[in-house]
């Protein structure tokens, strides 16, 4: 299956909302695909904007590592998307992902993380995120950032480290997260219980 926003017919003669609805979904997916595929060719970042964004990203990493998931959830917009693709060439409408959450499923994910019978995260993973190489640019909907992140995880008797990079769209004066794309190359070869990834 291959779909792209341009392939989707516009509203029919009736101009019904339902006919627009899949187009809106595909348009959001296209935004995600363009953010991912267009990152490598970007120009030198804006140093001041990058410093501002770095503080927001460090704050997010601190909340996640501390297990303050409700606070983390509060920092998202209503039209949030968290996407963890399986490769840096993926499209959210054509390829499997590890996850693609809207705000509703993000809230469910936090509920699951806090459920004492969710054995995949009980006992919970202890993580330490090392965020680096933060670059930021002005984008059409807000600030676009790319950063690297090393996620160190301890759980039961195991220890694993995953190197990744992340793309954020941060909107408004308070830099709320509208989009986050987390690219973990190890997902293409196999990861043990990745349910700690956010």
């Amino acid at each position: 299956m291959t779909v792209a926003a341009a392939d989707v017919p516009g509203p029919g003669p009736s101009g019904s909302a339902a006919a627009d609805a899949p187009a809106a979904v595909l348009a959001r997916y296209e935004e995600l695909a363009e953010l991912l595929s267009g990152m490598d060719g970007r120009p030198l970042a804006d140093p001041d904007l990058s410093a501002t964004a770095a503080a927001a990203l460090a704050h997010e990493a601190r909340l996640l590592d501390a297990g303050r998931f409700e606070d983390w959830l509060d920092g998202w917009t209503d039209d949030a998307v968290l996407w963890v693709p399986l490769s840096d060439r993926a499209h959210p409408g054509n390829d499997q992902s590890l996850l693609l959450d809207d705000h509703r499923r993000l809230a469910e994910r936090i509920e699951w993380r806090c459920d004492p019978s969710a054995w995949g995260q009980q006992p919970p993973s202890r993580t330490t995120r090392v965020v680096g190489s933060v670059e930021a640019w002005d984008g059409p909907r807000g600030v676009v950032t790319r950063s690297t992140v090393l996620i160190d995880e301890h759980r039961h008797n195991r220890h694993q480290q995953l190197a990744a990079y992340q793309i954020h769209e941060l909107v408004g004066d308070d830099l709320r997260r509208r989009t986050k794309i987390l690219v973990v190359p190890a997902l293409a070869t196999g990861v043990r219980n990745p349910s700690f990834l956010l």
């Binding site: 299956m1 779909v3 899949p22 979904v25 595909l26 959210p92 409408g93 390829d95 499997q96 992902s97 590890l98 996850l99 693609l100 469910e108 994910r109 699951w112 969710a118 054995w119 995949g120 995260q121 039961h156 043990r192 219980n193 349910s195």
Partner: peptide, 27 residues
């Protein structure tokens, strides 16, 4: 095409909220 677009999100559901429990039990 809506069917496959739904499938992409539907099959993430169990993989994210069910499979981790299986993986933990196996280990």
């Amino acid at each position: 095409p809506e069917i496959d677009l739904l499938r992409l999100r539907v099959d993430e559901d169990f993989v994210n909220f069910g499979t981790p429990d299986d993986l933990d039990m196996f280990e």
